Simulated assay, not measured.
Amino acid sequence: MNVDQIKANKKRKKRNRLIFRTVVLVILLAAVAYALVSNITKDKTKIDVGSQAPDFELEQINKNNELETIKLSDLEGKGVMLNFWATYCKPCEAEMPYMQKLYPEYKDKGIEIVAVSLDATELVINRFIDQYDLTFPIPHDTNEVVMDAYGVGPIPSTFFINPQGEVEAIVEGALSLENLEGYLKQIQPE
């Protein structure tokens, strides 16, 4: 073997190593990208039907401009419709009149509607409440703690909780009046 052949072999080995390393790097990058995309797009719901609903405590401003605390465990023995929404969400806005229409009747039957707002400011929420004349509790989840505890993805998202504190149904997206009433009947205390 002459010097030129030895140099050519070294070059070929270097090129093969570079190709091998590049292929390994591309495979690793693809695996990392796949893991990131899978993690971002996977269902965020941490709560399943049949799970015990996580307790929470949130505040809202009542009609007298006083802070009022809403705690899920205080509603034990009642059916609870727990709705996550925001004023900028058009489907959320569409279902609010249905919730208000059914609230007085189902409140008397032992069901509480709690609509957790994910808006940035209470001023926006209060204007919305006044605009639709809403009377059910609307606490403000300022730090999205409750939203994270329930694994809420898209809004509106609604959790129907039976009197024993178990999740009976989870609905992502807006509810029609008929669907809403059907779910409320499922969580009505006996």
Rank of each mutant, 00 (worst) to 15 (best):
R15T: 15
R15K: 13
R15E: 13
R17T: 06
R17I: 10
R17G: 08
L18A: 13
I19D: 12
F20S: 10
R21Q: 15
T22D: 05
T22G: 15
T22P: 00
V23G: 09
I27D: 04
L28D: 03
L28Y: 15
A31F: 08
A33K: 08
A33Y: 05
V37D: 04
V37T: 09
S38L: 03
S38P: 01
N39A: 08
I40Y: 04
T41G: 02
T41M: 11
K42M: 10
K44F: 03
K44V: 07
T45I: 05
K46I: 14
K46Q: 08
K46H: 06
I47E: 13
I47F: 06
D48P: 00
D48R: 10
G50V: 02
S51I: 04
Q52T: 15
Q52M: 12
A53W: 00
A53K: 01
D55K: 07
F56A: 00
F56R: 00
E57P: 03
E59G: 02
Q60E: 14
N62L: 01
N64E: 13
E66G: 08
L67E: 05
L67R: 08
E68I: 06
E68K: 05
T69M: 07
K71W: 07
S73P: 02
S73Y: 00
D74F: 10
L75S: 07
G77R: 11
G77D: 13
G77S: 08
L82Q: 14
L82K: 10
L82A: 12
N83Y: 05
W85P: 08
Y88V: 14
Y88I: 06
C89Y: 11
K90N: 14
E93H: 05
E93V: 12
E93L: 05
E95Q: 09
M96D: 03
M96Q: 12
Q100T: 05
K101F: 09
K101D: 15
P104R: 13
E105R: 06
Y106T: 03
K107I: 02
D108G: 09
D108S: 15
I111E: 09
E112H: 09
E112T: 15
I113C: 06
V114F: 02
L118F: 13
L118V: 11
E122K: 09
E122N: 15
V124P: 00
I125C: 07
I129F: 01
I129L: 05
Q131G: 04
Y132F: 15
D133S: 06
L134Q: 04
F136C: 09
F136Y: 15
I138T: 04
I138Y: 01
I138V: 14
H140K: 10
D141Q: 10
D141L: 12
D141H: 09
T142Y: 11
T142K: 11
N143C: 03
N143W: 04
E144R: 14
V146K: 01
M147R: 10
D148H: 07
D148E: 15
A149Q: 07
A149I: 08
G151E: 08
V152K: 04
G153Y: 00
